[in-house]
């Protein structure tokens, strides 16, 4: 029996209010017990203020604005659910929605696989030059997406790009990396993975290094194969880290803006245009702040839905263990 766990039929002492897990009675909060009541709140206050000012209040304002017709220089006019009704029939919005889902699905899935593969290769400190490789893979995540986009435009450009220049100088034809709709999406996904995987690799390396080495030694003694060890030890114990990576990568992919703006401007046509680009266009170029707010609310709901779903799925797996 574990220390602190309850005996059958007897209530767990730790469940009782005012007790620590080992059954030691907790000190009751008193009026003068400042350290245990007000102090933590005070420490949290700056963060709460910043979060409230820059996230919560604008989000509430955004929700309010989504029910209005509002240009930057006009007074908002309440129009009920009209923006959301229009959104339901907006062909361009649903195209961008579809593109966002495709981009997010492939980017997140491939980032997970690629970052995990890199982490598995580089976490043990047994390869020569491992730290250099870690740095090399991590550096792109330190660059701004605008810089990344500009650099890759130089590489993938149809006429002025380095790759096509090399291909043509060898007698071949150029590849339409950014002017063919499907290839443009593939290019954007590939560059996104290149730019972000290093960051998630570091997170996963931390997760891998936290797995006790004894478990691997025991598996080795038991004669477990490498794939069996991976599926029975590594993956289950890395699950919480993978969940963090999954949620962060999903949120980032739904908010992708700079890279696409620089590399393709959402084109050709609508091929790589995502919801965020459409929100920007509607808000700042078409001057329809209310309608853009409605789009943002829908985007927020989608991201929230995916995040909750990911947490739920992960929680479900935990129950089976």
């Amino acid at each position: 029996m574990e220390i602190g766990s309850s005996t059958q039929g007897e209530p767990d002492p730790s469940d009782r209010q005012g007790c620590l897990p080992l059954g030691i009675p907790m000190k009751r909060h008193t009026k003068g017990n400042f350290h245990q009541t007000a102090a933590p709140l005070l420490f949290l206050l700056p963060n709460i203020l910043i979060f409230g000012t820059f996230i919560i209040i604008p989000a509430i304002q955004g929700l309010r604005m989504s029910f209005t017709e509002w240009g930057v220089f006009t007074t908002p006019k309440f129009i009920g659910f009209d923006n959301f009704i229009e959104l339901a029939g907006d062909e361009v919005f649903w195209k961008t929605f579809n593109n966002t889902i495709v981009y997010s699905f492939f980017t997140v899935a491939l980032i997970m696989v690629y970052a995990l593969a890199l982490a598995l290769l580089l976490y043990k400190n047994v390869l020569k030059g491992e730290k250099i490789f870690r740095s090399l893979f991590y550096i792109p995540s330190l660059l701004s997406m605008i810089t990344v986009g500009i650099a890759w435009r130089f590489i993938l450009g149809d006429e002025m790009g380095i790759i096509n220049y090399l291909l043509r100088s060898m007698g071949g034809d150029g590849i339409r990396w950014l002017t063919d709709g499907k290839l443009a999406m593939v290019s954007i996904i590939a560059v996104s993975i290149w730019a972000q995987a290093g960051y998630y690799m570091v997170v996963l390396i931390a997760g891998l290094q936290a797995i006790p080495i004894e478990l691997y030694e025991a598996a080795k003694i038991d004669g477990a194969s490498a794939p069996k060890t991976f599926t029975s030890i590594t993956l289950p114990l890395l699950r919480s880290t993978l969940l963090v990576v999954l949620v962060l990568a999903t949120i980032a992919s739904f908010k992708a803006y700079e890279l696409i703006s620089v590399m393709t401007k959402g084109g050709p046509g609508y091929a790589t245009k995502f919801i965020v680009q459409q929100v920007y266009q509607v808000a700042f170029l078409e001057d329809r702040m209310g309608y853009a707010s409605a789009m943002s609310i829908v985007l927020m709901l989608i991201i929230s839905l995916f995040t909750v779903l990911q947490f739920k799925l992960s929680g479900g797996e935990a129950d089976h263990e």
Binding site: D158, E159, M160, L178, T179, A184, K265, G267, P268
Partner: peptide, 15 residues
């Protein structure tokens, strides 16, 4: 006309 300008937003002045 190069497709890379209107389909790939390449800079025509550079071309």
């Amino acid at each position: 006309v190069p497709k890379s300008v209107w389909l790939g937003s390449e800079n025509p002045a550079e071309l």
